[in-house]
Every structure is written in C-alpha cells, then in structure tokens.
Design a protein around this nucleic acid. Sequence first.
DNA 1: AATACCCCCAACCGCGGGGTT
DNA 2: CAACCCCGCGGTTGGGGGTAT
Length: 299
Amino acid sequence: MGRSPCCSKQEVLNRGAWTALEDKILSAYIKAHGEGKWRNLPKRAGLKRCGKSCRLRWLNYLRPDIKRGNISHDEEELIIRLHKLLGNRWSLIAGRLPGRTDNEIKNYWNTTLRKKAKAESSSPRAEQSSQSKSREKKMATEPVTAEPSNSAQAAATPPQVIRTKATRCTKVLIPAIPSPNEHQSFISTATDPVDPQTLQSQLPNYHQDSEVRHGTKEVHKTSAQDSDFFNFSCNEFQAGHEDADGDNNFKNVGLHDPDQSLTFDETMFKDWTTNCCLEDNFNLDIDSLTFLLDSEEWP
DNA sequence: AATACCCCCAACCGCGGGGTT
DNA sequence: CAACCCCGCGGTTGGGGGTAT
C-alpha cells in the first residue's frame, strides 16, 4: 500500500525546537479553527512545519489542559501500576492521567520510573549486594534496542500484561450491566491471572451482543479513551505473559469478538456508570483509578 | 576553569490502523 | 478491492543543562 510522505520533501520546513512565535501562531490557529486536518494546517496557518510536528507540539505542549512537570506520588504510583498492567501503552496510560501526555509519561518512565520499578522488583538482598552506582547507571542508559523493552519489563513486572488494542474509537463497546456484586466479581476476574475457563464461567451475565451502535457520535467522542478501558476490561481482553526472550506471548482468552454486540439503551448506560467506579462522563480520575488499583484483586 | 559525562525531555521518525475514494 | 489519506502510536534521537572529575 503506497503512502505519501508526511511532508513534502521539496519544501523547506523548520525543524527542531519551536519558537515562541510559532507557538503563538499554532495556538491561535487551533483556537480559531479547532484541531484536526493536521496535514493542511501548517499551510493554512502559515507555519513552515509539517503537520505531524504541529500536532505533536499542540498535543504535548500547547494544549491548554496540559499539566506540566511535578508528577505527584499518586500519579507516579498509578503510572507504575498501569504500566505493569498495560505495558508500554503510553497513550492508554496517559488517558488515565488527566492533563498528562503520553510523551511525558513515556519520558518519565524511561528516565525515572523504569529504574524504580526495577529496583522494587528485585529482591532487597540482591538490591543491596549488586546495585553499584555504575551498574545502575548503565542499566538506565542502556538503549531499549540493546535490551528489548519487553525483556526489561519482564524483569521489572509481573508476567501478566493486558494487551489492549489502541485503535481509534469508532464504536463504543460496553458490556451488559452486572449487578454490583457481579461487577465486583468481574473486576476481580478481569485482573486476576487469567484462567480462561473461570473467565468464561463468569461471563454468562454479559450479553453477547456488546457492540453499541446507538448513542453514536457523542458517546464515541467523549469516551474515545475510556472505551479503551472497556476494551481492555472486556472486549479486547487479552492476557499476555512474557517468556525468557522477553517476547509477549499473548493468549486470547476468548472474550474478543468484535462481532458480538449487545443491545443498548440509556438506562443501561446510566446503570453502568453508577454501578461501577466510573463517573457519568467516563472521566476516570486518579481517585477512581487508585480505588480500582488498590482493590485487593488487583495484581 | 575546562572538559567529559550524564540526564532529561522536546521533537522526530517510521509504521500501522481505520476511513475514504 | 486496492490505493490513498489522515491520524495516532511507540521507539529513538539529539540538544541543552546539570554534575562530576
């Protein structure tokens, strides 16, 4: 399949750090015209940048809702735990941390948390005996390619990583609404080391037909990120384990079937949001996530 | 004070998925 | 159905500031 280059190579484009003026122009343009159409944006805004660069600058730096720096202890813990669960799915992790960008989290992980996670995962004895400063530094600076990130994770994380499919959300996937008890057992099931049979046995209460075509755009838009949450909880649920090579061996546990859809109505949607820890607008805040992660069933 | 080294993070790159024509 | 477009993701790079020697 042919692909046109992102930016015309003949054009002379600015590269590297953005100037204050460029920032101003981009911000003003997006405020006036909204996000999107990145490819044409530079031309229309009068910027000598490629669309991708503009998008990145906006998403990672200029967006008004961005929190910068000072990652709190809570956020840090959440990142570590989400990383254990999701692996290097930075955009998904960022989606659970309001105001944080995937790039920021990725950088923070690579520079700070990876060491921490590794140190925590190794035994105290080993930590005491073997962690000379030079070794720690070496590990920290080892390029990911030299030691595949998966194997680095394998050492630092428990074996299960739920591999979600981070795709653009075009339809909302919502499971049928369990009673509060059932919901609890579902959460438990979905986060325990996966036993497909157990999982299946707990599923009868979930309608087969889980694809929502009703609710459409508004729901789609507002829950694009959070639908991923549902996906990894229910529909795209895959349990992975890493072998000695650091490869992920993902085992589909039988839940994923995009063609299975469920009938949907407003009440169900409401029930879902009230029966579980999600807010009405599906905005997961740190508290709700921490609550979820702190539950005993969480790995 | 000069130099080397390290660390952080903004930005770039290549690629894949979904939508459109 | 193939070709193409657009967008977003994850990995990587490189510049600049800080620290060690």
